[in-house]
Design a binder for these strands. Structure first.
Lengths: 252, 252
DNA sequence: CGAGTTCTTGAAACCGCTCAAAATGCGTGG
DNA sequence: CCACGCATTTTGAGCGGTTTCAAGAACTCG
């Protein structure tokens, strides 16, 4: 992953033109000349080492970000000092859109691993939307994707017990990896058990126990943060089971 | 409320021009002539009686809706037949935006009470965005608001116990009422205990018990669906308490 | 290799769920 | 206007699952 990290940035210093995400991003519909203009006026790419904070709750909205490589978490700090994770972000997602209505960020975004982002000056982006309808359309599409992602998170969090919560979360994660061209059956969790628990409304011990429980049931293999989904259908069954057939019921 | 229902529609047959929501909606920045054009091409208002379904998961995205009066729920049907509520909607919210990326709705939206909606033909709206930048900007703003609303729901659902879940939900609801010019301390829940539980990841019995528990603690008064928040600060404290000071601890 | 973080595992208390039944409220029709 | 039936809500008791508290193991990073 480190090699990926150093490699990809140097290969894309040019901006949008050579970006492997281009066709899913704002400049998707632009021709080469337009891309060059857009890229040079709006965009700047840069690395974000693990742990770096892109923006904090309360910061004014100067730039929107798009994840190019790596992963991030959104979180909010409660008055009692505890951190509440509200989302995890992967490649191609817009970061900071929650600030659009008010002009101020309402959550803090942190890199979970060495990552790369694309910075978009928001003012200029808005102005560009006025001049270039293709950018405006694509921007709407990205905002729509954000809404869909949030909706899927709400679906997950509506589950009532740890089994369903974690099964749903893993399935959603697998789908997101698949959509990005990675393996849907084998991947690495970039967040700690604590962050995962904070997102799902569980304690980290419960997350740990439930994951090892899935391992015992041969639904997944899990070593630290490395996950391999063995029995996809079984996991789906667990995620949506109506009753509480937790353990393998020998009869029936 | 029934009088409101019959009254407001007749008063606004003209479209956006006389709509009391206009300044928070798509036509906010248009002058009278532009509003007339936009309104006549895109918009149609209509009543939606309680229980009516605006669209179902799987339906193609023909029209977006904006709540003018009343309230709605979004839900998804699991394969086992159970309904999962993913959101509640109030005045001024866009309904159907989750369908923008794919062109197909991914949830079902149902009126929780006699309501009024504004229908926007999506194709025409997109075309209008290309012609009128003010509409495009305002549309982005509405999508941004949707993202913010989803984020706040995620914050609520990250809570770990029924007390915090319900306290957070009530506070969020109060804030939404306040933002719409209604009382933030006295309002009516438009959803059943079951729907509320489905959204929060709790069983309806737990919802009922927790609400009466709040009543016993003199945080709220609740009669059926009528809620009055008596001790706002206390409710906030309960929503974000780090420990589990559930009952009034006499010592310490 | 060592220090700190992260993860796992255990036991007990607590909380939310399940199942069950009664009470309340609401709409419809008499 | 009242009575009836149905949906919603409340309440109870017992069980099971999640949290809490605690300690040890495994991993990461300098």
């Amino acid at each position: 992953m480190a090699s990926n990290f150093t490699q990809s940035l140097s290969a894309n210093r040019a901006g949008c033109a050579g970006c492997y995400l281009r066709h899913f991003c704002l400049s998707a519909d632009l021709n080469d000349a337009e891309t060059e203009i857009f890229s040079s006026h709006i965009v700047s790419q840069r690395r974000v080492p693990k742990g770096e904070i892109l923006f904090r709750a309360g910061d004014p909205l100067d730039t929107l970000f798009i994840t190019r490589l790596g992963s991030f978490k959104s979180s909010v700090l409660n008055e009692n000092g505890s951190e509440q994770v509200t989302d995890f972000h992967m490649t191609g997602e817009v970061l900071g859109a929650e600030a659009i209505p008010t002009g101020y960020h309402i959550c803090t975004v942190t890199a979970l691993e060495d990552s790369e982002i694309c910075s978009l000056r928001y003012r200029e982006l808005e102005a560009f939307c006025d001049r270039d309808l293709k950018i405006a359309r694509q921007f709407r599409l990205l905002l729509g994707r954000k809404i869909v992602a949030a909706h899927q998170n709400l679906l997950i969090l509506g589950c009532t017990n740890s089994t369903q919560l974690l099964a749903s979360f893993l399935l959603n994660l697998a789908r997101k990896f698949e959509a990005r061209g990675f393996s849907k059956s084998e991947f690495v969790l970039r967040m700690t058990r604590g962050e995962l628990g904070s997102f799902l409304g569980l304690k980290l011990e419960t997350v740990s126990r439930t994951l090892t429980h899935f391992d015992e049931l041969n639904l997944i293999e899990i070593n630290q943060r490395h996950v391999r989904i063995i029995n996809l259908e079984g996991l789906k069954a667990v995620a949506k089971e109506s009753g509480r057939a937790k353990r393998k019921t020998s009869q029936e």
